[in-house]
Design a protein around this nucleic acid. Structure first.
Lengths: 338, 338
DNA sequence: CTGAAAGCGCTTACAG
DNA sequence: CTGAAAGCGCTTACAG
């Protein structure tokens, strides 16, 4: 490993001057700058991140804090993580993954080590203990999702309202008037007040009211076995249904074959829109599903950007809500003439 | 932030002694140890990870290096990452995510910063340039997957051979003799010599030979549109088929509805085994699929463990191959009497 | 514009 | 068993 000291000696300057050109933090004569840069190149100098962190009190590491709970609802978590890591890299930061319980104790412990400059908090809950820990420790952070008092913080989230409206509008425009929203139970472990469910339901109710539609909501349990009964329940509880909004990809996998078993064709008899999906999962379907593409990649990028902005400019990025992208597929069509 | 110096003053000892109890690196009288521990607790001391890293030349950070390519084949990547991060945490390490191109240039750049003690390399290719960079820079590493010359390195991987045998044996035991392996094309961008495909195909050929089965392999392209034609092609190219092994979850999503459209019932007419799947995706199916559960969580744990062992004991963990777990479902049954 | 020096918060020979 | 001191490789006032 070649150090700044060696570069300084090689270029015949002090290490302070090397630091100045490295960080572009003080004016340096073009000629000495050139000499230093040549020395750095010749010696293959790479600035040591750890020493820099200790001296500058900025580690340039941010943490992605993720609950340990298993989620079925993870279609875009991976792309979110990778995208956040990429954006962090572009901005000169590193991203560490911190699985940590929702009570905040592990988080407090981790923060105490002084390894990270800030935190990106995933799977934010309406009342989130981890936010208290972050505030206590004066750790800069950005939320992915929203807490109850989110307006006080930097956050990025899916624009559930726009997304839900677009999906309902699409179906309404085709002529559907009996649109059932199928979403996971908010009573299940780990899904209490789960933002995506809460907000989608709210938006659905609002749009339905505006359009004069009946509000039909069917909740399912997050057990792996529950998928098979979905179609049975749907047709029993909502015999008049002509279209469904599915908010969980895995539930969709249970619903579709079930409908077919009941002799209901998609889209001729029932239209299906998959909310919060990834293209990979839906496009291979037959017919390819009409779906709302979850903006995982963009959220990862925006989340990292928001946090770094907060760290560098101490200026909270204004909240960013990103709608899902509507992707027309073959699973929606006008309802049968009744 | 409270430092070791403050603890030392509070306890009336030198910082060296504090360090000795902290690291348990030299004998310390029980009474002074107790005094120091009390001081640490009272002051709420937390050892600074960055200073420790600089002084000890060990950052206790490891990197998970992941290619930037989009993969459809990612069913267990997320659980792998989280599991690796959890295990790293348990062992006193942090895990950073480094998206980096396969040519190794970004990796070399990142390693130069001296931030990590070692690397966990994902999506290893048969001839992997990144391995050259790791060797050049004398960076300890463990592989997830295997390169051509993997026997020289620490690696963990899926035991494709055992998994494939188990799947074929299951079908064979039910009476199937026309078993088609459906796997992604190895000519597609990013899937050249793709380990999971290569090894599954090898094992399939070996088992088929042993059992005296016809070798029937169908390749598909990794385009999102290709799913719909899968069943058509299968039934055209292999009209005698009674069972299929699917190696890509998304392809399975295309195959199943296609079969049904052709009037082939699962499992009555055709048995289906989903290889390398996660329970979430398959259990909601109707019928729930028989599948081989991808050991993402265990691989993440083992990978982190192998690397840390290498770092701490300089002793390579012997290679670990973990078979998928057979999960009986409703998509396999004896073939129709012909 | 450049340099000498202190300091970031630890670890680790070395001495006693 | 304990301490004084050097040092990890940088950054950053402070001086000139």
């Amino acid at each position: 490993m070649v150090t700044m000291r060696e570069v300084a000696e090689h270029a015949g300057v002090s290490i302070a001057t090397v630091s100045f050109v490295l960080n572009d933090t003080k004016p340096v004569t073009p000629s000495t700058r050139a000499r230093i840069e040549r020395s750095m190149a010749e010696l293959g100098f790479r600035r040591n991140a750890v020493a820099r962190a200790l001296a500058s009190r900025r580690t340039r590491i941010i943490a992605l804090v993720h609950p340990v709970v298993d989620r079925l609802f993870i279609s875009s978590s991976l792309e979110f993580m990778i995208s956040a890591a990429e954006e962090a890299g572009r901005l000169g930061y590193h991203l560490v993954i911190w699985p940590a319980g929702n009570d905040g104790n592990e988080l407090r412990e981790l923060l105490g080590q002084g390894l990270v400059d800030g935190v990106l908090l995933m799977e934010v809950q309406l009342d989130d203990q981890r936010i208290g820990v972050l505030s206590d420790t004066a750790t800069p952070f950005a939320l992915i999702g929203r807490s109850r008092d989110h307006h006080r913080y930097s956050y990025v989230d899916i624009d559930f309202d726009t997304s839900t409206r677009q999906a309902v509008d699409h179906l309404y425009g085709l002529g559907h008037r009996e649109i059932v929203l199928v979403l996971g139970s908010q009573h299940d472990e780990g899904f209490q007040s789960y933002g995506p469910y809460v907000r989608t339901e709210e938006s659905y109710r609002a749009v339905a009211a505006e359009l004069g539609l009946t509000v039909s909501i069917m909740e399912f349990e997050h057990t792996v076995a529950s998928g098979q009964g979905l179609a049975d329940r749907l047709l029993t509880e909502h015999p008049e249904v002509t279209a469904v909004l599915m908010i969980n990809e895995y539930a969709t996998l249970g619903m579709l074959p079930g409908l077919r078993r009941h002799g209901r064709r998609v889209p001729e008899d029932i239209s299906v829109v998959s909310m919060l999906s990834s293209s990979a999962a839906t496009a291979l379907w037959d017919p390819p599903l009409t779906f709302m593409h979850s903006p995982g990649t963009e959220l990862g990028r925006l989340g990292a950007e928001a946090l770094v902005r907060l760290l560098e400019d101490n200026e909270p990025l204004r909240p960013r809500l990103v709608p899902c992208t509507f992707e027309a597929g073959g699973s929606t069509a006008p309802p049968r003439a009744s």
